[in-house]
Design a protein around this nucleic acid. Sequence first.
DNA 1: GCCGTGACAATGG
DNA 2: ACCATTGCCACGG
Length: 143
Amino acid sequence: MTRVTKKPVVTSPSAIRARILAVVRRIPHGKVATYGQIAALAGFARHARQVGYALRDVSQGSDLPWHRVVNARGEVSTRAAVGWEDVQRDLLEQEGVELVRERVDLARFGWKPGVAARRTSEAAATRGKRRVALHAAPRRSRG
DNA sequence: GCCGTGACAATGG
DNA sequence: ACCATTGCCACGG
């Protein structure tokens, strides 16, 4: 059928954004994901900054769980509009995400896609040991 | 089409 | 543990 004449791979103005937002939408309630993780899951490793860009364009008025996205240190990233940092922290706490010193323990609340919730005891045990790769595949990526 | 910007990330001091 | 620097890459002017 030679319908490949013109493939829709045209990379829309924001094909990358759409993909990113799709991943953000998958973050489960009560969990958080890092910018770099989102980018990697979307298929755009080292585009962590683009995640922030995408969210900045959306933010309010959307059903997107934008508040579940934090930086690699588990902190809420500061953006242009001051004050929303508190809003985000509040939303997270409402979901049961603990914030210790303004930081989220990624080992506990970090979203692990594809892995169903294991036993709580097991998760606790993991805490004391070495932390396995939380991110999908950071490798040598840097941004 | 080049240049600066940015809700990031990793490294070094 | 904190601050400064460097890298990365799409987007907007």
